[in-house]
Simulated scan of single mutants.
Amino acid sequence: MTTLIEAQELTKKYSVRLFSNLSLSVNHGEVLVIRGNNGSGKSTLLKILAGITEPTHGTIKRMKPDLIISYVPEKFPDDIRFTAKQYLYHMGRIQGLTKPELQDRISSLLRQFRLESEHANAIHTFSKGMKQKVGIMQALLAKPDILLLDEPLSGLDTGTQDDLESILYQLKLDGMTILVACHEQKRFNSIVDRGIILGDQPIQSEYYPAGELPHRVIIQADTNAQKLDFLYGIAGVIDKEPIDDGDVIRLDVEPFASDRILLALIQHGCSIQSLHTESEK
């Protein structure tokens, strides 16, 4: 699996700390959902990954020098007087696309998003769901490597949510890498590959949809009297249990995170005693 972005120990503070020591990778062709309550830092994390804002601490490494990242904010402007076709054309020209490229690209996107009949209507007359589609369409004009969507389903009726989820599924089949900030717990489970949950505590957890992973990895390590606070910032730690009066730690982790956690333990002076898998109960 090809990694496109590697984020290490991200911390973001404004007047309060949103999240701290958050590490994650973004892999080619996957759908990654970021969940959490309002104020947990979902939108801010997307903006950091997009390069719109900087983390207070931590590093972002983009593995391709010409990586194209498109970001779609939660709210599309209400008062755009252009038609959908005019708006997409001007946005494409700003992005450096040629007129012939745009003609083909816009026609293809209008078909894919089922807005062909609306192409000559002013965007300010559109419903919120239609405006959301136009926002995503303009983000796709340049055929980005990664599409970042901030609460794309917010305020939409169930039918429109289903429609957008179906479109994202097709984009996934086409090989698009997609990151979605979403607080709806039951949405995207049919297409998501991984998810990260931001909460009130400095603990993040990643998951796969139910049934995708038949086992978990159990790591047992001698702590060598080292503090284990660094484990709170590593996604994928399901459970941890001190044994032998705290001299040994038993970790229950998701398989995708085992290599990262093993490396962190070694780097922090712990000795690995055992490693095995256990079936899900």
Rank of each mutant, 00 (worst) to 15 (best):
D104Q: 11
P100M: 07
S20A: 14
P214M: 11
T3A: 10
D247N: 13
L275F: 15
T83D: 06
F256G: 06
G159E: 10
A142D: 08
R111S: 12
F256Q: 08
N21L: 09
N189W: 12
K99Y: 09
Q226R: 12
M63I: 14
D157I: 03
T44A: 07
R105S: 06
G41A: 08
D247Y: 13
F19T: 02
N37Q: 12
I272L: 15
V72S: 02
S15N: 15
L109Y: 07
R17N: 09
L265V: 08
G135V: 01
L231I: 00
S108T: 12
S190G: 08
D229R: 10
L10M: 13
L32Q: 01
L32T: 02
Q273C: 10
G36F: 01
K61N: 14
R81T: 10
D104Y: 09
E165N: 14
S70D: 00
E151S: 03
P55A: 06
T3H: 11
I123G: 00
I69F: 05
P152L: 02
D259Y: 15
V16H: 13
L251A: 04
G129S: 05
S25T: 15
M91N: 04
V217F: 00
Q226I: 01
F113S: 01
S40W: 05
Y207G: 05
N38R: 12
G211C: 04
L168I: 05
S117D: 13
E165L: 11
G36P: 00
S190E: 11
C182K: 02
G211H: 06
L110W: 02
I243E: 04
L22H: 09
V180T: 03
T277H: 14
L231W: 03
A235L: 13
L179A: 01
L156C: 09
T83W: 08
A7G: 15
D163I: 05
L263Y: 14
I261G: 01
L110F: 13
L171K: 05
V16N: 12
A210S: 14
N189P: 01
K128R: 14
A225S: 09
E118W: 11
R35E: 07
I94K: 00
R114G: 06
D78W: 12
P152W: 00
I69V: 00
H183L: 07
H124C: 06
P255H: 07
P209L: 08
M1T: 15
S43Q: 09
L198R: 07
A235F: 08
Q204N: 13
L140H: 07
S108V: 07
E241F: 15
G51M: 05
I234S: 02
F113Q: 02
R35P: 00
S108R: 13
K75L: 11
A50W: 03
Q201H: 09
R105E: 10
P209I: 12
S40R: 05
L198E: 00
L18W: 05
A235C: 15
Q95N: 05
L97C: 01
F113W: 10
S279A: 09
E118V: 05
L148M: 04
K61Y: 14
D157G: 09
I5R: 02
E118L: 11
V26M: 01
L153I: 13
L88R: 06
K281P: 04
T11A: 03
V26S: 01
L46D: 03
L148C: 00
R111M: 10
R35T: 12
I243S: 08
A257H: 07
R105P: 02
